[in-house]
Amino acid sequence: MLGVARGRAHLVNVVDRPLPKGKTEVNLSAFAFLFSELVQYFQTKVNNVNELERKLEEAGYGVGLRVLELLCHREKANRRETRLLGILTFIHSTVWKALFGKQADSLEKATTEEDEYMISEKELLVNRFISVPKDMGQFNCGAYVAGIVKGVLDSAGFPARVTAHFVPIEGQLRPRTTILIKFSPEVMLREQRMG
């Protein structure tokens, strides 16, 4: 049995409690500790680096679809995003603000591919206290954030492949993290039809 506080708040059902206003912030150390535990836990459950990234993505996915529903209700006055650029700026500004307290550093369109977009962050919150050992290769804990982005996009009706990568920047010790978004063909088709 978990040590559940037997206060009054505990007795009230979720449907009777008001929705959180989103004004509270969580201590960064507490979050970093919890996140490090999450990574370590998954490490005991997987055989290779790829599986570990999948696990982190799955964990983020659930966050993404909840965050979409909550923020559209709270910040967007119940308007849905139906356009590609709309949902991307929503992620870049609204979602990032709610989760990390600031807008993402940049949102760019890939120069080579029509269906690829990138959200970059110099110092991604989840990566702040993480350094990846050499033998883990390209592993990036930003996979968790990639999962969040995928969750938002998928449930809003924009299925996409989302991955996190380190991109070195000149004159800086730490590489930045880029979240690469590649939309499914049906999303691009719909966008074309909508003009």
Binding site: N13, V14, V15, D16, R17, L19, P20, G62, L65, R66, E69, L70, H73, N78, S155
Partner: peptide, 26 residues
């Protein structure tokens, strides 16, 4: 609009699997 708000509250429960049946009597 009010049912939507209730739905969000149910969805925010980490133990609710998104897309599954809502069984809460409340």
């Amino acid at each position: 609009q009010e049912v939507h708000e209730l739905y969000i509250k149910i969805l925010l429960n980490p133990l609710y699997v998104p897309g599954s049946k809502i069984t809460s009597p409340q």
